[in-house]
Design a protein around this nucleic acid. Sequence first.
DNA 1: TTTTCATCCATGATATCCCTTGATATGCAG
DNA 2: CTGCATATCAAGGGATATCATGGATGAAAA
Lengths: 163, 163
Amino acid sequence: MSALVVYAGSGVSGVDGKGRTTIPAELRDSVQQSSGANSVCISRHSSLPCLIGFGGAERLKLRADIETQWQSAVARGDAFDRELAGIPASSIFETAFEASGRFVLSPMLKHFGRIDDRAFYFGATTHFMLWNPDVFLKEAPAAFEPVKDELNYWLNEQAKRGK
Amino acid sequence: MSALVVYAGSGVSGVDGKGRTTIPAELRDSVQQSSGANSVCISRHSSLPCLIGFGGAERLKLRADIETQWQSAVARGDAFDRELAGIPASSIFETAFEASGRFVLSPMLKHFGRIDDRAFYFGATTHFMLWNPDVFLKEAPAAFEPVKDELNYWLNEQAKRGK
DNA sequence: TTTTCATCCATGATATCCCTTGATATGCAG
DNA sequence: CTGCATATCAAGGGATATCATGGATGAAAA
């Protein structure tokens, strides 16, 4: 484990009545390499109405980063509240996914990620994001403009194949 | 791997019903030398209706760069948004090609690159470009004028050989 | 018992791999 | 230079694996 991986690729996946959703294959491979197992970490985004996901190595990295921030703050003589800094990472949920890449989105994650019956997955190099497609098109910041093109492509494809 | 190479040479290659296309031999050698493997990165161009390509493992380098930037930002006490920094690299697609140099252009890349049943490849030193021949002749900026001559040469050759 | 939840199996559609083929390029001997 | 054998090229086709998803099974909780 602990390999440096790249999260890339995108796709729209369904979310069924049980909250089950499938991570697109390309992203799933990255998550597996990062975790060394069939396990994915999902977390609320700190400011945007979406979820973020990554493998186990990234989670450990977040922990290590806090130590680094603390040490360099001390070295500069700045204040750094390690307790506060650790709170965001505490809402990361790690769940197992089956061989097919499918896992259960808890009702709470669905709530905070505003996920309904479809999820738009896309890699962002160091992690991946999970949006409600409608919310993404309407509310994602300008920096995501090229990714909106991708989503529109997928929605078009799905429409062509009859829903 | 990771050698400094020059992408040069040009050619027109077919794109079959499965989206399969062959990188011309000369360019393929550069890609192999650059990546040390049978892997190529393809990406949308940021402003032109074409695709750009280069050796594989480039994405991994971008990820490593982001980590480096993050670390030095932390050391200086600066802010660094790792999430946003990862977005541009997310639209680079890495794919393996077979020994013959053939790989699959995903439907999405075909869409954004406006590729139909033929692809015009040409080296541009630091990378190579991939155009729909018709689009290239009609819409490429003036700077590509000399390259248009090359394309016309290839199209002439193909016409002579029937088809 | 009834419900809940995770694991396992089933399925149709699609993509990936590998072998083949015809055309062209290259090397070498006569 | 000519002729032939070999290597390499681009492209086609088909068996097989993988994808995403729907549903069934079975164990533990309510």
